[in-house]
Design a protein around this nucleic acid. Structure first.
Lengths: 230, 230
DNA sequence: CCCGCTTGTCAAAGATGCGTCACGATACGC
DNA sequence: GCGTATCGTGACGCATCTTTGACAAGCGGG
């Protein structure tokens, strides 16, 4: 990995130190900015491969910066990884579509962060793993538009249901055990009951209607989605 | 799940008891150390898959231990899960970051702890040791998707049957005696009747249909699976 | 401020798998 | 060929896991 450059925009020195440590260890080159204006300038000038952006910044809010980044042609294609304080903010980011490519909630585990960074960069190289529509049987899922339909008819899913379904579809055929789903769908901080997964699976099945049986129960392990038939 | 080893470094007996109880129940093998020096030694000698480290230790502070662990080449790659007493310390830990991979604040919920442990271990495995498909004769077994088929046709196996089959297939050609099967399929120290193995082998054969004879009985010893013919 | 939607929790009901047993079948030693 | 040890088979009750429906708290919108 020939030193991919990452730009960090954050005002807290602790966080910067932490990020630096682990990202350096992972073999990345770094730039830092402690305020939004500087961050934007550096993004344009240095053309980093990825930007890590704190949602809470003095003066200019992170979302605003993200918006600008995604508007400017020079920086539009640079993936943005958001740092957010609370899990609740996640939905707003995803929902309002400010263009962030991923997010990590504070406090985060360093390992998780590096993993995400790598994942995003890999995505960029692979040229469209993320934006691609997924479809299995009659179910079609469009990540970009947060949209799902079954047999051509649109289905309204809630945030959790959507994440759950897209997670299952991305890993189609492979069994996802409950706690894994918890970690990936509900995020790093969750301490919720694993039985809750069942409830949401049930709601999903209900909404999927005739395609409900696409989600198979693997007793003693978890759930998986039926393989696409060829 | 063949007994992954976890090292606990903590001086409070209560905490150790609590951790032991739940981690054992979750199927892990454990080692314990009540002080830092011993902990470090054991980490080097036993090469555990994960270390749970209390931040507050007599004599040597947890952070110091973490630092040493992350410096030593022999232990550098072992993930560390920190136990911290107060939420306020989180920021300091994150800020100072001596390389811990995750942390849990006391008092912690057992469920949360086990969840985190599993999550960390999964991460380590995820990228590197991608589970390989196994196939012998007409039988194909895919660990990732919990799927088996015989001559192209899928076969529905239950949890125990699946584990039993994959164990036999991993050790193809070699005879597996009952006790051994009991230990690996049913987990640590199982107290079930050895005849039970027969029952499950029978069920397996039944489900495998025409490929049933792939499992050979070795009278007086146990079972083995036929070598792959080429 | 109220209302509806979303979401996590819980308990009861339902489904499935698992371990055990008894008995018949088979292999092995003599 | 006989007896004994070992293995295969089918049935059965219990335990566990999953499903289901209902409920309440939280949040946002009108």
């Amino acid at each position: 990995m020939a030193s991919t450059k990452i730009l960090i925009i954050d005002d807290e020195q602790d966080v910067i130190d932490l990020l630096s440590l682990h990202l350096r260890k992972a073999g990345f080159a770094l730039s830092m900015a402690t305020d939004g204006a500087t961050g934007l300038r550096m993004a344009r000038e240095e053309a980093p491969a990825l930007i890590i952006l704190d949602l809470m910044l003095p003066k200019m809010p992170g979302l605003e910066i993200c918006k600008v980044l995604k508007t400017d042609a020079a920086t539009r294609d640079i993936p943005v990884l958001m740092l957010t304080a609370k899990a609740e903010e996640i939905d707003r980011i995803v929902g309002l579509e400010f263009g962030a490519d991923d997010y990590v909630t504070k406090p985060f585990s360093p390992r998780e962060l590096v993993l995400r960074v790598n994942a995003i960069l890999r995505r960029g190289k692979g040229e469209s793993t993320e934006e691609k529509k997924l479809s299995i049987g009659p179910i079609t899922l469009d990540p970009a538009r947060h949209h799902v339909d079954v047999g051509g008819k649109p289905v309204r899913l809630t945030s959790v249901e959507f994440k759950l379904l897209s997670m299952l579809m991305r890993r189609q055929g492979r069994v996802q055990e409950r706690d894994r789903l918890l970690n990936e769908v509900w995020g790093y901080e969750s301490i919720i009951d694993t039985r809750t997964v069942d409830t949401h699976v049930r709601r999903l099945r209900k909404k999927l209607g005739k395609a409900a049986d696409a989600i198979e129960t693997v007793r003693g392990f978890g759930y998986r989605i039926r393989e696409a038939k060829r």
